[in-house]
Amino acid sequence: MAPEHYLILLTFLWVGFVSAISFMEAWLKFRAPGVTLAIGLSIGRLIFSGMNKVEWFFGLASLALLFVSGFFGDSMAFFLYIPILILLLQSIWLLPAMNKRAELVISGAELPKSVLHFYYIGAELVKVIMIVSFGVTLLGTL
Score class of each variant (00 low, 15 high):
75 S>L: 11
56 W>D: 07
105 V>Q: 07
60 L>I: 14
82 I>H: 00
66 L>H: 11
106 I>F: 04
105 V>F: 01
110 E>Y: 02
107 S>P: 01
59 G>F: 12
102 A>C: 01
81 Y>P: 00
114 S>Y: 11
73 G>Y: 13
92 I>T: 10
70 G>K: 12
99 N>E: 09
59 G>Q: 09
103 E>H: 02
62 S>H: 07
80 L>Y: 08
70 G>P: 06
99 N>S: 09
73 G>P: 03
81 Y>I: 03
87 L>M: 13
113 K>D: 12
116 L>C: 10
57 F>H: 09
91 S>N: 08
66 L>K: 07
116 L>P: 10
115 V>F: 13
67 F>A: 11
112 P>S: 11
116 L>F: 14
98 M>Y: 03
75 S>H: 08
106 I>L: 04
82 I>Q: 00
73 G>S: 14
59 G>K: 04
99 N>F: 10
77 A>F: 02
54 V>A: 15
84 I>W: 01
89 L>D: 05
60 L>N: 05
59 G>H: 08
52 N>F: 06
53 K>E: 08
51 M>F: 10
87 L>P: 03
91 S>H: 07
100 K>W: 04
111 L>D: 08
64 A>K: 05
51 M>K: 14
63 L>K: 02
115 V>S: 13
59 G>V: 14
56 W>Q: 09
72 F>H: 09
77 A>K: 01
60 L>D: 04
94 L>N: 10
58 F>H: 09
61 A>V: 09
101 R>Y: 09
92 I>N: 06
77 A>N: 02
65 L>I: 08
64 A>F: 14
69 S>E: 03
101 R>F: 07
66 L>F: 13
68 V>Q: 13
62 S>P: 04
73 G>H: 11
59 G>P: 04
52 N>C: 09
90 Q>C: 08
103 E>N: 10
107 S>F: 00
63 L>A: 13
73 G>E: 12
55 E>T: 03
69 S>R: 05
62 S>Q: 11
70 G>Y: 10
98 M>W: 02
102 A>R: 02
102 A>D: 07
111 L>F: 08
53 K>S: 12
112 P>I: 04
66 L>E: 12
66 L>D: 07
78 F>S: 03
53 K>I: 15
56 W>N: 07
106 I>T: 02
90 Q>E: 13
95 L>R: 07
62 S>A: 15
108 G>I: 01
68 V>T: 11
88 L>K: 00
114 S>N: 10
100 K>L: 11
64 A>T: 14
52 N>L: 14
90 Q>M: 12
106 I>K: 02
63 L>Y: 13
116 L>K: 14
101 R>V: 09
57 F>L: 15
59 G>M: 10
98 M>V: 05
52 N>T: 11
74 D>C: 04
81 Y>G: 00
69 S>W: 03
